[in-house]
Design a protein around this nucleic acid. Sequence first.
DNA 1: TTCCGTCAGTGCGTAAACACACAAACCTGC
DNA 2: GCAGGTTTGTGTGTTTACGCACTGACGGAA
Lengths: 242, 242
Amino acid sequence: MLTTTALRGPPANRLLAALPKKEYQRLLPKLELVNLSFGDILFEPEDVITHVHFPNDSIISLLSAVAERSTLEVGMVGNEGMAGISVFMGVDVSRNQFLVQGSGTAVRMKAEALGNESNHLGSLHRLLHRYSHSLMTQISQSAACNRFHTVDARLARWMLMTHDRVGADEFQLTQEFMSNMLGVRREGVSKAAGELQRKKLIQYSRGLITVLNRKGLEKAACNCYRIIKDEGDSFLGLSTGR
Amino acid sequence: MLTTTALRGPPANRLLAALPKKEYQRLLPKLELVNLSFGDILFEPEDVITHVHFPNDSIISLLSAVAERSTLEVGMVGNEGMAGISVFMGVDVSRNQFLVQGSGTAVRMKAEALGNESNHLGSLHRLLHRYSHSLMTQISQSAACNRFHTVDARLARWMLMTHDRVGADEFQLTQEFMSNMLGVRREGVSKAAGELQRKKLIQYSRGLITVLNRKGLEKAACNCYRIIKDEGDSFLGLSTGR
DNA sequence: TTCCGTCAGTGCGTAAACACACAAACCTGC
DNA sequence: GCAGGTTTGTGTGTTTACGCACTGACGGAA
């Protein structure tokens, strides 16, 4: 850790530099210069995020993992940004791995300090913050899912997500349409959907899909479904959260 | 469009329902019930988002497109959320296509009305909103990129993003490491990196990479690089934006 | 009833990336 | 300069999904 005196002068982090001078002066006492070394893991998924980091010349990668060996970078943070935006969103538990991809310095700030900045906000504002975080998690998770999982599993996941939202066992969707959602060919959906039908999990004809066996469908889907679902429920306070 | 009187009673949208009664009452005059039909496109990329939508039993898909024929759903919004979170983040231009994936009703609100909610915020808060949006765009774009583009193009994109952040032409990164970032095998990186070296765009040995031809590298990368880069720059007001 | 457009199933060749195995090149420390 | 670990290149066979072409099945409109 370096001395705080090194923070005099204009900030190297461009996000901090974009603040009005007064605002930056106000933050200064809360900031602390640190060295980050290649390979350092700042936080693992499910860790409590104790500090947010504003990289100077260091780089922090945000990784999503769907299995032991399968990791994917979903975001890269350099001097243009801040690692730990979820704290700002009111969620201090990490969903990603924070990996130092480039050695260098960064300015860090206690998570509480940033949290306090949002104390005076109204309910709508706070709720939208939580929702933003939930949506960002959904996007990250499906990014990894689309990268690593088969069309079959992804189709099952997608149908479950749709099923949750329509609130009925029947819904109108062609294979052509689903192929655009999953980013695969129509023929690929035909094959995957045929398989789900063969297993009696769903039944469909000319764009009308009926969910026959919800539990079975959940088994056919990757557990990305559950991760996304839990996130979406917990932000509304419907589940115990984590 | 339906009459506003239909809005009496508790909101069907769970996000709105999670608000304290008083807060919801305050918003009520700004809300308007609308019917959404399957296939409706609420906004295209680059459109100005005029309204945010809180689905009741309708579903709105957020799509990212990397080419005419290649679309990918990056987010699904049902009664648990709101479509148009970027407005809340202070960006009223859409980066995605908003497609109605399930017919039904939704409550909508003028974008300005939501924007006004954030008028009193401090600089740091506003800036972090903008950054959140930028990061979300980065995640969405790389999700689509990872789905559709070859390892070669993605490796070039990733190296450019790293190059931008280290501020030097040399950086230390093994193929093993990069394979974890891109979510591919180490051998795949070996092949792709070998190709870039053959073209004299980069030069590397035992983890030390040197960028030889930045322009050429940009050509080898998919234009996802430019999209992400522009987004990251514009939120800091460094570019003219769009 | 017939026609036509939409929706779904299938087969064949190709391409990209995977898994595994192994070898070569290189670096560090003894 | 030798040993052992790390980094990189390459080869073979397999898997997954793509691209294209075509057929069949169904349903609403004339």
